[in-house]
Design a protein around this nucleic acid. Structure first.
Ligand SMILES: [Mn+2]
Ligand SMILES: [Mn+2]
Ligand SMILES: [Mn+2]
Ligand SMILES: [Mn+2]
Lengths: 219, 219
DNA sequence: TACATTTGTTAGACTAGTCTAACTTTATTA
DNA sequence: TAATAAAGTTAGACTAGTCTAACAAATGTA
C-alpha cells in the first residue's frame, strides 16, 4: 500500500515526464520543486521508490517511472481528474477551485469508489480543464490539439484544454468568457511584441500575450 | 490545522463520551482500544491534545472534550455521516460498506466541499445507519427512540437506527430484510434465554437474541 | 486495610518524512 | 580543457506517531 506521500511523488514524476513531448524523465531538483520539498528530501524518497520497484533511478542519473510505478501514477491521476469532474459538475465548484480539493481526494483508497464515481459521472473523458481522464485499465483518451500560439490565422477553433491551471489564468479566462468549447479565431499576429488579436465566440476581439496563447489548447 | 491522526482521536473521544447516556468522558485504555493503538500511544497524544486546548485531561484522570475539541469532533462526525449518505444514496454502496470509505473521506479539508455536499444531498438529517448528521453550526437533529429490547410487546414500531454498525450485524439485518424504516412488532419475550420473537414488516416472524434486540433502535 | 488487579504513565527506541550544511558529480562555458 | 555553475547526494538532526518494557497510581476485594 502506497502512502499519501509516495503517491504524490509518483504523480509528480508522471506529470513531469509527460509535460514536454517525449521527455519521459525527470531530475531530482525538478521533482523537489514540483512537490515543494528540498532536493535532499527528494533524493531520499527516490531511493525508497526505487527499492519498491516503482521508479528506475541510478545515482546522479535521470528518473523514470517503472511499469508498476506508471500504473500507480495513472490510477492517482484518474482519481484526481474524476474528483475534479465531480466537484465541477455536481457541486458547482469553479474550475480554479477543483484542483486543491482533488489533491486530497485523489488519495482515498477504494477501487469501488472510483469506479462507481466514474459511472455516476457518466464515464467522462475529460476533466474540467480539458485533460483526459485515464480509464480503469490505464488507457488515456486522446485528442489531437494545438497550442493557440501555433494556430492558423483566420481558422475557427474551439478551446479543448488549458495548459496552465493556475488560479490567475483560469480567473482571467473566466473574465474573458473563455471556457472549454469556446470558439476562438486568431485575427492577427502582432510581430512587434509577439502578441495576438483573437476573436472570442464570434462576439468580441481582444489582444492576448504569447504567454497566454501558449497556455490554451485548441482544435 | 489538525492532523489526520489528531482528528481520529477527537472523533473517538466524542464517540466514547456520547455512547453511554450521560457518560461524557473516557479513559486512556478505552481511547486506545477504540483507535487500535497501545495505551502508551494514547497517553502521548492526549498530552498533545491537552496542550492544544482540545481536551481536558489531568494525569490519571478522566478525559473530556473541551469546547474547541467538541466543535472539531462534531465537524468530523458531520463529514463522516454526510459522506456515508453520499456513498449510499448516490453511489449505491450498501450500508455495511460506507463506513470504511467515510473513515477516509471525513478528513478532507474544505468547508465548501462539506456544505456543497450537504446541499447536493438535500440536507439529510440522518445517515444510512439512522445516526443524526450534525449541522454546520454543530446542532444535532434529535429523535427519541428506544432499544428494541425495551419495546412494548404488541406495539408496532419502525426501525430508526442501528446501534451496532459492524458488517456482520448489518449483513444479517439485510438477510432479514430489515432496514431503516422497516416495521417491527415484538410478539413475545422468551424469558428462558432472554430472546425475542418479532414480526418483520407484518410479513414474517423470527426469533432474535437479546444482543440483537439491544443493537436496534425503534420508534 | 492490605493485597491483587486494572488502569495509566514513563523511558527509550523505531520509522516516515522532512530539513540544513557540506560535499560530489556532471554540465556549461570561457 | 580547465574553471565555474548547476544538479544531485550524504550526513546528521528534527517531528509526528507508534511500539515495548518497566513502573506508578487507582480501584476492587478479601
Ligand atoms: Mn496529492
Ligand atoms: Mn485538471
Ligand atoms: Mn478517520
Ligand atoms: Mn454511520
Amino acid at each position: 500500500m502506497l502512502s499519501h506521500t509516495e503517491e504524490n511523488y509518483l504523480k509528480a514524476l508522471l506529470k513531469i515526464s509527460t509535460q514536454n513531448e517525449g521527455k519521459d524523465e525527470a531530475g531530482t531538483n525538478e521533482m523537489a520543486a514540483n512537490l515543494g520539498v528540498k532536493p535532499a528530501t527528494a533524493t531520499d524518497m527516490l531511493k525508497k521508490l526505487k527499492e519498491k520497484g516503482l521508479v528506475d533511478y541510478e545515482k546522479y542519473g535521470k528518473i523514470t517511472l517503472s511499469a508498476e510505478g506508471k500504473k500507480n501514477a495513472l490510477a492517482i491521476l484518474r482519481k484526481h481528474r474524476l474528483w475534479e469532474t465531480f466537484l465541477s459538475k455536481k457541486l458547482d465548484f469553479s474550475w480554479d477551485e477543483v484542483h486543491e480539493v482533488a489533491e486530497q481526494l485523489e488519495h482515498i483508497k477504494s477501487e469501488k469508489l472510483v469506479d462507481k464515481l466514474e459511472e455516476f459521472l457518466n464515464f467522462p473523458e475529460f476533466d474540467p480543464h480539458g485533460d483526459p481522464i485515464p480509464k480503469a485499465n490505464g488507457e488515456i483518451p486522446v485528442i489531437k490539439n494545438t497550442l493557440l500560439a501555433a494556430a492558423d490565422v483566420g481558422t475557427l477553433y474551439k478551446v479543448t484544454a488549458v495548459k496552465d491551471t493556475s488560479s490567475v489564468f483560469l480567473k482571467y479566462l473566466e473574465k474573458l468568457n473563455i471556457n472549454i468549447g469556446t470558439k476562438i479565431k486568431v485575427i492577427e499576429k502582432i510581430s512587434f511584441d509577439d502578441s495576438f488579436v483573437i476573436e472570442v465566440n464570434e462576439e468580441f476581439k481582444t489582444n492576448i500575450s504569447l504567454k497566454f496563447a501558449k497556455s490554451l489548447l485548441v482544435n
